[in-house]
Each structure stands twice: as C-alpha cells, then as structure tokens.
Design a protein around this nucleic acid. Structure first.
Lengths: 238, 238
DNA sequence: GGATTCGATTTGGTATACCAAGGTGGTGTA
DNA sequence: TACACCACCTTGGTATACCAAATCGAATCC
C-alpha cells in the first residue's frame, strides 16, 4: 500500500523547517511570504500554512506584520533546560515503573548504533540527530505521549544550537557515556539514580552550551546570526 | 494608544475556540471548512488559519481529509496530569528561589478575589477560568516562560473537562483551600512542602475528575460527546 | 542642508475560482 | 432483490486577484 504523495504544504513545511534547522536560513532573518513563494516555487496558500506550523513550533515568529526566523535566545535556552530537567526527570521515573526490559533494550540498541566510536563514517548531522532522538526515545518509555511531545518540542527549539556548540569527539563520547549510564540505571530499576544522572546530564550539557555560545557569540553575530543575550530574570533570584 | 482592531483571523480563532471550550461545538463533531465559513461569516482563508492554530493547541484535529473537534480522551487527561505534576512541581520549587514576596502576594490577591465564599454572584464560567488561571499564575512565579506555556497548554486541553466535572460548592472550596496551602508554603519558602501539596492537589483533582467522567461517560455520550475510553497503556505497568 | 510630505511599492489579510479526489445516491441490470 | 456502475456533489488543496496599511524614497519646501 503506497502512501499518497505528500501535499505541497507538507513538502514546503519540511523544506522550510530543514532550511531553518540547518541554519541555511539564519536566525533573525526576515522572511516574506512572497519571497518564500518565489524561493520555494509554491503559492502563498501553502507558504502561509507552513509558516503557521513553524510558528507553533517556535522556529519562526511574527515580527510586526512580517515574519522572522526565530533568533537564538539565550534566556530561552536556559528555560528549556529547566523544563527538560522537570519533564525528562519525571519521565524516566515513570519509565522505571512501566517500561519493559525489551523496551529499554530497544533504546539501548539505538544508542549503541549511534556510538561515536562505532560510527566510522559518522557525519555531523547523524550525530546531532541521534543525540536529540535519544532523549525523545527515553521519554517515550514513560508511555506518556504528552511528555514525549513536550520533550520533542524542546529538542526542536534547541536543535539549532547543536551546530553552534563545540562538539569535539571527546564531548560526543562524554554525552554518549552519560546516556548509557542513564539506561543502565533504568535497567537496574533505580529511579533515583536514573533521574539524578539524567537531570545532571541535561544541566551539564546546557552549561557547556552556554559557555560555548557566550564565548562565540561575537563571532557568530559576525556571521549574521541574531542571538538574543540572556535577559535579566523577570523575577530576581533572592 | 488604541490597539488596532483584531484581524478577522484572530476574531474567528477566538470565536471558534470559545465555541469549542464551551462545548457548543461538541467533542468529536465533524467540522468542514465551508460549513464554518458559513457559520461564522468569513471566508475560507481565515477559517483555515484558525483551524491550524486550534490544531496546534489540540482543540481540533485532522480526521482523514477533514476536521473534528478533538474528542475528550481519558488517556490524554491522565497524561496531562502527569505532565503537570512534573512541570508545576518543578516550577513551584523555582518560584521558592526566585519569586519576591510581592509577586507571591499578587497571586494571593487574585486567589482571594476568586474565593467561592467571597464570590456572591459567582457565575460558573468565572470559577472555571479562575481555577485554571491560578496554576498558570503560579507557574509564572518561576520566571520561566517555557514552563508557563507548557502549563497553559495543558490547562487549555483540560479546560473542557471542567464543565463535565461535578463541581459542588464543597469541591470548589476544597480546591481553593489547596491552592491557598500551596501559596502559604511558597510564602514560607518551603519548597518541599509546596511541591508536595501542589502535586498532591493535581493528582487528587485528576482522580476525582476521572471518577466523575467514568461514572457519567454513558450519559455524556448520550448527549453526543465523543469520549475516548482509557486505552491500555502502550507500555504496561510492571 | 535638513525636514517633510506625498506617492509608488511592498506587505500581509482576505475572498474566491478552480482542481482532483473521495463519497453518495440512484439507476439499471442480472 | 441484490449488486454493480456511473454521475453528481462535497471536500480539502491550491493559485491568484484585490485591498488596505505600512514602508521607503524622492522631490519639494522651509
């Protein structure tokens, strides 16, 4: 049974989304419906539909009457990390109760397949994708699709920062090891350890990311990237 | 400075949303773009834009080629409660660190204004809205707009169930008291107590809701409401 | 020279015409 | 009577024309 060909709207959404996530369309760049219409050879109706979906995902946003590719917002990155700690931490605790060994092993197999050391021809994109997918797959073990959607949405909003982050082979290996440790604790049905390791991993990754972004923000801005600096907290720390 | 009049798309979105949340448009009801065009006296372009936004909110969904008002899904209600426990619990812990006394007092003032006992002419809708708003305002004290959006989205998806829930004056007073207790713990900067009280409140409210829905689901279905029964967990409990 | 005004152009918002696909009902035949 | 077939109609998908508002620039006036 063949699937019907995707509609133009879906194709356009996919292409626009890919262009944004790959930074081909630069954060902060102004988009016009008619410009996109010409660039992607479609009419305004599917262009508008695609923009609406991307708006809901947070990848584009309104700027006055027009549209811009969402800038990279350092405050939002921190906020997303806090959300992920809460949701993924709770999800892994639920997974300890609900996931079968087979479910866990399936995720472990995916993780092993993406191990940097094993991945001789690891292209950059594959590694980036695998890192984000792991967290979604892990959340899925909780059997709560709302939590999965929340994690997936957060990973989407964070996806572009992974290209900017300094990703040395050592850093990739560290991330892989931390993922592995979470799965081991999950296999051992040790909810406290699994949650502690996972939240520490999220927090640590976020801190390394912020350091890298702050160090490079001037250079990145020089390439035309709009990066919104970390605004003072609306509610001050006591 | 007067705001410009809302565009037709926004007006249509608001009206459609209100019709869905008030159950004027029944869960499971089939919607056609041309039918809505006639009902709301607008053309298909804004109708499609409004449907797209409501789709992102989870209030309508695709059904084959067409659209339906999202059915009330008992599994999703439980999943949303789990997400709320995670996010709101984490948010109140952050609020203990970050919110000023003035911020907390402002939320307390809103809560007092909505106290059922004080509210002589409390119409049903006002009470419903106040209950949902409290949780959003509370989350806002964490100073994390991503968490606020997550809580707001969850409350939106749950909003229709509040009309179905049995809401006696005693139940309303109990909810108010539990809200008040959370704020008191927050004022005392007792993070553990605040989080414990809040998650217990969310869980208890959810359990009472599920009991009421299960008891009444046959009657409700008789009124044309599509209620999706609780599906077996995709990942079984151990 | 600088500010201002006015008009051409560009923009998103809206309405609508056209299309292909899917569904429905009726009719004719075995 | 039951089934098959076909015409029609409704549906969402798409393209496009038109509009009002905002923007940009040039020409003009002080």
């Amino acid at each position: 049974m063949l699937d019907t060909a995707p509609s133009q709207t879906v194709q356009l959404y996919d292409r626009l989304r890919a262009a944004i996530l790959s930074l081909e369309l630069v954060p902060g760049e102004r988009l016009t419906e008619r410009g996109l219409e010409a660039s992607f050879d479609a009419s305004r109706t599917p262009v508008r539909a695609a923009l609406g979906r991307l708006d809901a995902e947070g990848l584009v946003q309104r700027d006055g009457r027009g549209w811009i590719v969402s800038p990279i917002d350092l405050a939002e990155i921190g906020a997303l990390a806090e959300l992920r700690e809460a949701v993924e931490g709770a999800a892994v605790r639920l997974a300890v109760q609900r996931a079968t060994d087979a479910d866990i092993n399936a995720v472990a197999a995916l993780l092993d397949a993406a191990r940097p050391a094993n991945n001789t021809n690891a292209d950059e994109e594959q590694g980036v994708r695998a890192g984000g997918d792991f967290h979604v797959e892990l959340a899925a073990l909780a059997g709560n699709h709302v939590m999965v959607d929340a994690v997936r949405g957060a990973m989407t909003r964070l996806a572009r920062t992974r290209w900017l982050e300094v990703r040395t082979p050592a850093a990739r290996e560290q991330a892989w090891q931390e993922h592995r440790a979470v799965l081991d604790a999950l296999t051992a049905r040790d909810a406290d350890t699994a949650a502690r390791l996972l939240t520490a991993h999220i927090r640590g990754t976020n801190e390394r990311l912020l350091v890298a972004l702050n160090a490079d923000s001037r250079r990145l801005r020089g390439h035309g990237l709009a990066i919104v600096p970390d605004a003072p907290r609306p509610v001050p720390r006591r």
